[in-house]
Write a protein that binds this DNA or RNA. Structure first.
Lengths: 335, 335
DNA sequence: ATGAAAGCGCTAACAG
DNA sequence: CTGTTAGCGCTTTCAT
């Protein structure tokens, strides 16, 4: 069934049917009603393929993320998809994994599908050396990076200030007179920024050297690594800042197992303010990474660019500290 | 740039170019090579729009889930997308939320986009009364349900036996002489099945009445609700079976706060074997819901149907019990 | 093995 | 306000 069938049954031309479907143009009320009735009766749905061919747009946006099962990215994908749909776009999803080559391939694939724009979610898309594939993509369609930084026309960035967030978290613990350790599992772009934040806070305090613990991307690895270091701390008051909630939880377990009191002797701050924070005891203090706002801003930027509007090229949000049971927070220092 | 440009530069007709691009037909090696060279040189990518129009397929599959930020669904989406891509398909994602009307709308939307098939992930798509929209969809494209049951041509189901899984978990705790409570937050299709499993185990034991606790979809709600009931248990040995890991964790917190020893006095089993299980102390025993296998089977069914092959219409997997610190597991009773 | 030409279903510019 | 018609870029017979 196609537009011709409708036209025939309604006794009009295909152009009129097309006009009715596209809502806008000048069509008499009588005709419109007649056409709509026929469309309804026959349960007609216009072919997106044909429409796309004619207009060159499929009303579809490519959404890329390294791993849609990651807590943060999953939330992001969920928000983004919903917002895009409200704007009349669909999300074509690609979970690329972490290998550069696959990310490249995925971008190419989506461009081949002629998506109207590209949304790269997560700092995993910010490569250390070579981001040509992204810049290249931006020459074909608008591109928005969430938690990445790249400067180019037709490209917007929305990100959290990871450096600042970790800087503040570290500072908070240092001010309590603690020896502060930093626990992380990878040096993606934001991973590097976070580390910088920690380092900066340590340097500014100027009291003791940085102590960075690196572990695998598992709770248990964080636990093992932390145990070793905590044991070496003796009776010192310690603070642990982690680049992800689940790492902090690993450290928390280590601390409890080693008999330290939390939050007095050992105090911990995670990152992302995820569901996990409520699953441990005491509950984990964390930095909210503002997924929803990031996504909202990102979608807004994309829409701006698609509409040819000028838009902010770089938007930076601040993380929000959320105090729970693993830290000793004075009321007055709460935001 | 289009196929005509290539044809011209290569000194052949567009038909030949088309043949070369589609790999197959009879083209002389010389011609093929020449055309390929030109395509390469000009960096030509054929238009999916045009191709779709011609062939009526976009090599795209609609993936529906209620909430992509749900731990289970997020993993499912991630696996599905990857597998589909390996099969040469892209995933058009729709996170519908839980309202029936939105699910309907999303299905319609995707069909309108002329996806080649539909994958409905999660028992949220199994409505209690009215599933006509799904059956209707199955008349247009192959449909696969993950964790749903519906019988119709052009429709396949892949699901976990939720009833059996909870039945066994409950039985396990009953055999330890415990009074077993069931904790859940909603009665979706699988929610109902789980409840049945619990009820059946209780009935078969014939010792005491069922005790079902219902709470909101939050750790804290589970905690509050559990606390009340646990306090009423006195010195009785208690078992808690929960429909989701995070509910079990809520109950675990309540038990610890009330001073019960875990797993001796209070023993708990969650559901999904998610990341959360490792975040609490003791770690949570749980039933693995086999996301990956479910997805694998589902994609396989979809491919079968798309290829016109006959395929299993209903595939049922069994949950796998994973013992951790919240249960007293004898070695020999482990599977 | 290759080319010519007829669609695929819709949009949009142009005529009336 | 409505109809005619020429694309959109590719696939696919049907000839040759």
């Amino acid at each position: 069934m196609n537009i011709y069938d409708i036209a025939q049954r309604a006794g009009v031309s295909i152009a009129t049917v097309s006009r009715v479907m596209n809502g806008n143009s000048h069509v008499s009320d009588a005709t419109r009603k007649r056409v709509l009735t026929v469309i309804e009766e026959l349960g007609f749905t216009p072919s997106v393929h044909a429409r796309s061919l004619g207009k060159g747009s499929m009303k579809t946006i490519g959404v890329l993320c390294a791993d849609a099962s990651d807590l943060f990215l999953a939330q992001a994908v969920n928000h983004i998809e919903g917002m895009l749909r409200l704007e009349g776009y669909n999300a074509l999803l690609c979970c690329t994994g972490h290998a550069l080559e696959n990310k490249r391939r995925a971008i190419k694939l989506l461009l081949g599908k002629q998506v109207d724009a590209l949304l790269l979610v997560g700092s995993q898309f910010q490569e250390a050396e070579d981001n040509r594939h992204i810049l290249q993509a931006a020459r074909q369609v608008p591109v928005v990076l969430i938690n990445g930084t790249l400067h180019s026309g037709n490209l917007a960035c929305v990100r959290l200030d990871h450096r600042l967030a970790i800087y503040r978290a570290t500072q908070k613990l240092i001010r309590q007179g603690r020896k502060v350790l930093y626990l992380h599992d990878s040096l993606t772009h934001s991973g590097r920024e976070k580390l910088e934040g920690y380092q900066q806070a340590i340097d500014e305090a100027g009291r003791e050297p940085a102590t960075v613990m690196r572990c695998a991307r598992e709770v248990d690895s964080a636990r093992t690594v932390s145990r070793r270091l905590l044991q070496a701390m003796g009776s010192r008051q310690v603070g642990v800042v982690a680049s992800e909630d689940f790492l902090a939880i690993g450290a928390l377990k280590a601390a409890k197992e080693a008999g330290f009191s939390v939050p007095d002797q050992v105090s911990l701050i995670g990152f992302n303010n995820s569901l996990l924070c409520q699953c441990c005891q005491p509950e984990l203090s964390s930095v909210d990474s503002r997924v929803q706002q990031l996504c909202q801003e990102a979608v807004a930027r994309a829409m701006d660019m698609l509409a040819g509007r000028t838009t902010e090229r770089e938007r930076i949000l601040e993380g929000i500290y959320v105090g729970r049971g693993t830290t000793c927070d004075d009321k007055e220092e709460q935001p």
